[in-house]
C-alpha cells in the first residue's frame, strides 16, 4: 500500500457513494446511465469472485464487498425503486459492443487459462470501457448535473492515481502488471475530455455542457 493507491481507492469509494447519495437524496436517477452501472456490477462480480478462495487483507475484503454491494444497490435504485425517473430514452449505448470485445481480449491476454484468471482479465478490460454508456448519455443530452460531474471526476481520478501507484510499485518492488496497466491507461484516456470540461466549467461554477 502506498499513498497513490490509497488516494485512488478513496477516490473510488467516494465516487460510488456520491452516486448512491445523489440518487437516494434526490429520489431520482435522471441523467445516470443504468447501463454503465450494470457494466460496473459485472466488473466487480467477475473480479472479486476470489473473495471465496484468496484472502489478501481485511482492507481488500471489506473494499471488495463494499464495491459489490454498492453497485448492486445502485442498479436496484435505478431499475426498480426510482425506475420512473430513469432516463432510458437517452441511455441507448449498446453494451454488447463493450462486453464482446472485453471477453475476446480476455481470451487473448490473461495470466493463465483458468476460469478465474479469464474472469479477472475480462473485468479489467470491461472496467476500462464501462463508463462509455454514461459518457455517451452526457453527450446525447448535452449536459450533466454538477453532482454527476463530481461522480465522474472521482471515478476517473481513481484509475489515474492507480497509474501513479503502478509507476511507484515498479520502481520500489519491481511489480508490473501489464494487463492492468494497459487497460488502466486506456480507461484514464477516456476521461481526459471530461476532465478538461470539469476543470474549465464545473470548477468555475458553471454547469457541464457539451458542444453539439
Amino acid at each position: 500500500m502506498n499513498l497513490f493507491r490509497l488516494m485512488g481507492d478513496v477516490s473510488h469509494v467516494l465516487a460510488v457513494f456520491i452516486l448512491l447519495a445523489k440518487i437516494w437524496r434526490t429520489r431520482s436517477a435522471a441523467g445516470i446511465s443504468g447501463r454503465s452501472q450494470i457494466l460496473f456490477t459485472i466488473v466487480y462480480l467477475a473480479r472479486y469472485m476470489d473473495l471465496f478462495f484468496s484472502f489478501i487483507s481485511l482492507y481488500n475484503t471489506v473494499m471488495k464487498l463494499l464495491f459489490i454491494s454498492a453497485s448492486c444497490a445502485t442498479v436496484y435504485l435505478i431499475y426498480f425503486k426510482f425506475r420512473a425517473t430513469y432516463d432510458g430514452n437517452h441511455d441507448t449505448f449498446r453494451i454488447e459492443f463493450v462486453l464482446v470485445p472485453s471477453l475476446l481480449l480476455a481470451f487473448i491476454f490473461h495470466y493463465s487459462m483458468s476460469f478465474f484468471e479469464l474472469a479477472w482479465s475480462f473485468s479489467i478490460f470491461l472496467e476500462a470501457v464501462a463508463i462509455l454508456p454514461q459518457l455517451f448519455m452526457v453527450t446525447k443530452t448535452g449536459e450533466a448535473e454538477n453532482i454527476t460531474s463530481h461522480y465522474l471526476f472521482a471515478l476517473g481520478s481513481y484509475r489515474a492515481l492507480y497509474i501513479l501507484n503502478w509507476i511507484y510499485r515498479y520502481y520500489t518492488e519491481g511489480h508490473f502488471d501489464p494487463i492492468a496497466v494497459c487497460a488502466g491507461i486506456v480507461q484514464t484516456i477516456l476521461y481526459c475530455d471530461f476532465f478538461y470540461l470539469y476543470v474549465t466549467k464545473v470548477l468555475q461554477g458553471r454547469k457541464l455542457q457539451v458542444l453539439p
Binding site: D50, M63, S112, N165
Partner: peptide, 10 residues
C-alpha cells in the same frame, strides 16, 4: 511478471 497474478489490488 510473477507478482502480477497475485491480484492484490482492487
Amino acid at each position: 511478471v510473477s507478482a502480477a497474478a497475485a491480484h492484490d489490488e482492487l
